[in-house]
Amino acid sequence: MAVDRECILKCCQTNDLSCYDPYDIWMTDLGIQVKSLFNKNKYLGILPAAALTLFDHFLNNNTRLGYKRREYPTARAMAALTLLNLYKIEHKESYIQVAKLHLDWLLENTCKGYAGLCWGLGFKWAAGEGLDYNENTPFSTHTPYALEAIHTYVQITKDTSYIRHIKSIFDFYENDIKVLYENDTEMATSYGPSKDRLVTNSVSYTMYAYAIFLGYFPDKEDAIKEKIGKLYNFIQKRQRSDGSWLYSPDDEDSFIDCFHSCFVLKNIDKTHQIVPLREAERTTNMGYDYLKLHFYASKDGLFKRFSLSNKPSIIKYDLYDNAEFLHLAVLLRDLDFAKKLAASIDLKFCKGDAIYSVIDMFNFRKNKNTLRWAKMPYLYALSTFHLFQE
């Protein structure tokens, strides 16, 4: 494997993780306006959206004119998690020290004005019709990466001074994340700190966050376990008969893609390792089999983007999909397949010291060394693979 531990360390052992991003064009003022127009009216927005996509992909992908390098909380959290994985293998104190630098960056760069520590994208995001998030908006899908990194750091180092940060994140989930749906047996929570939208993977992230909280609040054990159970029941009952989940289960125009499906399955598995969930293995096996059957292109040895799409795309393969499936395969102990997939990713997405985020329909690699999406998820998956092979 060309991307070895030395390559992983070179990326993660630095205190500057600023980078360009595949979403750069949509962070510009014009990009935000066009995305908002598309979200309101696809027919009016399709041509300007296509024009910006083609400009970004074919004309500005290398030069990045008008874009700026940014730091991303999830990249920092995954860099810390990657180093902590490697520490478990090699026990080098320097890995802990740099991981701590990443955690301290996260603590300095939390979203402001909320009940507890929390993180989001760090840029404006036109997510849907009438749903524009600002750069200070935290999300239930992003915060768990920082939570897991701090939790893992505490477990390894026994540094109890960081426990207060975990308890602060708990306050965010308890006070800022909203309940969108609840009955006697099920619960679904919001994506961000408002009653915004129902998204399957965000419910799974909230479930996993509460599984981590369980070890820090013995006095709240029964209430937390009840919440985890209700969140899981919601997810499980929205799984379709073929093993898939819609991104948004109550949206007629929703989609099924690879990496969001992997998020759901990973969160179920990781939660199940802490709190036994009813029929968790059956649920994850159904979802895993669906992904292999409907996303895996054996000819190229890679996973494609969608099994059900709601908009056109020029992307053939995305590193994010493949990195997340690699991570999922490792967690589910499908190590022979993980090794095969890792070799395909290395061959198709990597060239020299560059790791590209996408392969387009013309088989061109694009988006060089973009950490958030998806070099860092890939390195994190590889470090987990190395850990499970020991």
Rank of each mutant, 00 (worst) to 15 (best):
K340H: 12
K112E: 12
L277A: 01
L332F: 09
R5L: 13
I89Y: 03
F388H: 11
L59G: 02
L59M: 10
D289L: 12
N134F: 12
R238W: 00
L332I: 10
K100P: 03
L180W: 02
P276Q: 03
D171G: 01
R333H: 14
E324D: 05
L347D: 11
T370H: 10
D257E: 14
L214M: 07
E174H: 13
R69P: 00
R305H: 08
A115Y: 03
T63L: 14
F349A: 07
S357K: 04
E226F: 02
H151P: 04
Y87N: 06
A49R: 11
V330W: 01
E6M: 10
F217C: 13
F364D: 09
L341P: 06
C7Y: 14
S161C: 06
E93S: 12
Q239E: 03
P377F: 08
H327W: 02
H151G: 03
R365A: 07
I256W: 07
T206I: 07
F259N: 06
S204E: 07
G287F: 05
P144T: 06
A280L: 10
V358D: 08
T110H: 15
D21C: 08
Y43E: 13
S298A: 15
A323F: 05
A297N: 15
I169F: 05
Y72C: 03
L81I: 10
L47K: 10
N369R: 08
L52D: 13
S161K: 12
R240P: 04
D318T: 00
G122P: 10
L371R: 02
P276W: 03
D132M: 07
N363S: 14
P312D: 03
K351W: 01
A381F: 02
E148S: 12
P218N: 01
N41S: 14
N201R: 04
T284S: 09
I355Q: 08
R305T: 09
G130S: 11
S241H: 05
G287L: 07
L103T: 04
D251I: 05
K35P: 00
K227Y: 01
F259C: 13
D257A: 00
R164L: 08
H272K: 09
S307F: 04
I8M: 11
I177W: 00
N41E: 08
L382R: 07
K225M: 04
T152V: 12
F58H: 12
F170E: 03
R333D: 15
A115M: 11
F139E: 09
K124G: 00
A223H: 07
